[in-house]
C-alpha cells in the first residue's frame, strides 16, 4: 500500500510530464490558435497539480492559488481569442 502523500506527488510528476506534451504543441503549433489550445491545456493541468500538491501536504490554504488560476487563466485565453478573431478591445 503506497502512502497517499507520495501518490499525490507522483500525480504531480505525471501531470508535469503531460505539460511537456502540451508545451511541445505550443512550440510547434502551426497557427496561433494551436498555441492557445496548448496553453489552455497547461492551465488546467497546472490547476490540478496545484490542488494535488496542496493535498499531498495537507496545506489547505494553498488551494486558493488554484482557484485564482482557474478564474484567471480563462481571461487571458479570452483576450487571445478576441485578438485572433480580429475584434477591437
Amino acid at each position: 500500500m503506497i502512502d497517499l502523500n507520495t501518490t499525490f506527488l507522483l500525480v504531480v510528476i505525471a501531470l508535469v510530464l503531460c505539460i511537456i506534451l502540451a508545451l511541445i504543441r505550443v512550440f510547434r503549433g502551426p497557427t496561433a490558435p494551436d498555441c492557445v489550445v496548448g496553453v489552455d491545456t497547461i492551465n488546467t493541468m497546472v490547476i490540478v497539480s496545484m490542488v494535488a500538491y496542496g493535498a499531498a501536504f495537507r496545506e489547505v490554504i494553498y488551494i486558493d492559488v488554484a482557484i485564482v488560476y482557474a478564474l484567471l487563466s480563462f481571461i487571458s485565453t479570452l483576450f487571445i481569442a478576441k485578438y485572433i478573431e480580429g475584434g477591437e478591445f
Binding site: P33, V60, A66, F74
Partner: peptide, 24 residues
C-alpha cells in the same frame, strides 16, 4: 476550496474552447 476550483474549471473550460474555436 477544491470544489470551488473544480466548479471554476467546469465553467470556464468549455467557454474558452468555444472562444478559441470561433476565433480560429
Amino acid at each position: 476550496h477544491s470544489a470551488a476550483a473544480l466548479i471554476a474549471i467546469l465553467l470556464t473550460n468549455p467557454v474558452g474552447a468555444h472562444a478559441i474555436a470561433r476565433a480560429a
